[in-house]
Amino acid sequence: MPIAFEQVGYTYIDPKSRKKKTRKIERGEKAAERGKWGTDPDAIWALRDIDFTLEDGEFLGICGHTGSGKSTLIQHMNGLVHPTEGRVLVDGEDLADKNVAARVRTRCGMVFQYPEHQLFAATVREDVSFGPHNMGLSANEIDERVRESLADVGLDYDEIAEKSPFELSGGQQRRVAFAGVLAMKPKVLVLDEPVAGLDPKSRREFLELISDLHKSGLTVVMVSHNMEDLASLCTRVLVLKEGRQFMLGTPAEVFADAAQLKTVGLAAPAPQALACELRESGFELARSLYGVETLAQDIAAELGYLTAAATKNGPAAEEENLR
């Protein structure tokens, strides 16, 4: 189920007043000078010229500074908002069509930030059933899906199904919210900051869960501020800047240039950032994307401490070396 963005632009300004405002902006810079809509006529756009295709089976990471359009962008993926300009095509069908959007919505599962805030039912079972129930499935099918999706997120059905979701710990609540989306058996899973606010242990467990879901064949889109996570999990990374595509490529391509990322208020993953700084200090480090282990190896080699044997066994992450 590829999702294609074709020159998508979006503005939150109400379409009725928009015409008037755009006309005024076009009429001259006077209004802009008065600061009524800022100095930049483009500032009314939350998204501009977004053009890429989310392919089946990929793991796309999206990052960007607060206000760069990340959340607005992902809401286009299942037709929660429609582009002001351009089109979003799912399997070649325009998402602006209500019927298409209705069909796509169950196949493109969306997990918002702090999804545990959206739990509402009296029991975990009811909460997870909500999606499949709305899809019109039979009671048996619903029950099966609830069991399956709870197992997928590592929760024990027998222990937890009849509990109130509000008795659970924060990490468990988030798992329940996840299960509620998985119960609809989506093809694409869109996650907005899925591990924000979790402690390190729950964060690791959750990232493993997401990685497993991706390996099982789901297309995953993940918005995150954590560059280490994006570098280690994603197959492609999209960096947004003021609503525009600033960079799009493999983690190695995107994170290669730490200075470039800094201009949009982002930092490269820690090992990569250090590698760039060391290069400036005269180190010769050849890889385009570094993790902790690969960086240690190359630094040791550069400093002349790495024995030949270690070099032979060492670079298990040879594929990381794109050059």
Binding site: A270, P271, L274, V292, E293, L295, A296, Q297, I299, A300, L303, Y305, L306, T307, A310
Partner: peptide
């Protein structure tokens, strides 16, 4: 911390 992870990896390699 990342710096600590890296130090330990480097120590293992004899640095």
């Amino acid at each position: 911390p990342f710096a600590c992870q890296l130090s330990i990896q480097l120590q293992k390699l004899g640095v």
